[in-house]
Design a binder for these strands. Sequence first.
DNA 1: AATTTCACG
DNA 2: ACGTACGTGAAATTA
Length: 362
Amino acid sequence: MAQIRPLMRLQVSLAPHAVDRLQKQRPHVTCSERLAGLETQAWDLAGQEFNLASPKQLGVILFEKLKLVDKPKKTKTGQYSTAEEVLSYLAKDHTIIQCILEYRGLSKLKSTYVDALPEQVLESSGHIHTEYMQTVAATGRLSSNNPNLQNIPIRTPRGQQVRKAFIPRDKEHVLVAADYSQIELRIIAALSKDLGMVDAFQNNEDIHSATAAKVFGVSLENVTREQRSNAKTVNFGIIYGVSAFGLSQQTSLTRTESKELIETYYATYPKLRNYIQDQIDFARDNGYVSTVLGRRRYLKDINSQNAIVRGAAERNAVNAPIQGSAADIIKLAMISIQKELRNKNWKSKIPNFYRKKYFKKT
DNA sequence: AATTTCACG
DNA sequence: ACGTACGTGAAATTA
């Protein structure tokens, strides 16, 4: 059995000044000071000291002492859940909730990125080196670790500041990003051969607006923000194997409204329903599903007697060919790009290939 | 070592 | 009546 080793390492540098700047909230407030202030404020609102970073202690404060809600949601081990989606749904107007959420966001960025990444700059190269793993993700995607460079923040303003710390090695280099637009929805459009969805892509339409227009029966320019947002959620839901309950959790819609929306969606893109059912049927008969390049995901639970377990396997049967085919296509693109750069004798490159001996831990 | 939470696609 | 979105990795807390 050949040993599985990382495919390659990607090197990126960190800007020292950006890293310094990230320590500071405002000119004279460091992250640590802000975090301490938030914890003190939370203690004040709770009427006692506790570890704000401890979900266990926090659950007791919120749901036993302050009794913020009647029926707190529990985790699978019976603890009170204090996950962000629970807190903001239950009581986003409470000052203590706002403290918790800002504390969580700030401490996440500080511990996982601002503090950890500079530690990972390799002395011998002066760069950050990640490992890409070829044989970890069940769908065929690459994964990244030590450090994970596939989850560098970008969604929030503070997160964008973190991402800005990544710079090319010197003035002679630039970082280039290449990315497919809506690749998973394009794949499901192509595989299902649903002409409505194919047409929307071929006409270069915003797929979420186009979906909203069709589903809600309005013209493209009259789609409201809420309609587009709901259509977007269903589009993603389809990729994951949507349920009415799941959709209602992700939107402000009730379960009944969600069910109707899904029905209307399938009426809009009728071949998607066939495609999804065909994938589930194939998995049931064969025990696996395939991507466009023939990569298989085996689904041992597809015929389980347990409806919950079977349901999860059915969602995998829908999702794996889509997510996995996207991974196939992106890997082909990486190869094409690499070849093109070489053929043109350009200095630009995708990562240097991994050579263990060059990257011994120091 | 397991759990919880949260960063990304 | 049940429980439910797909795929990862890392840090802090808890057991």
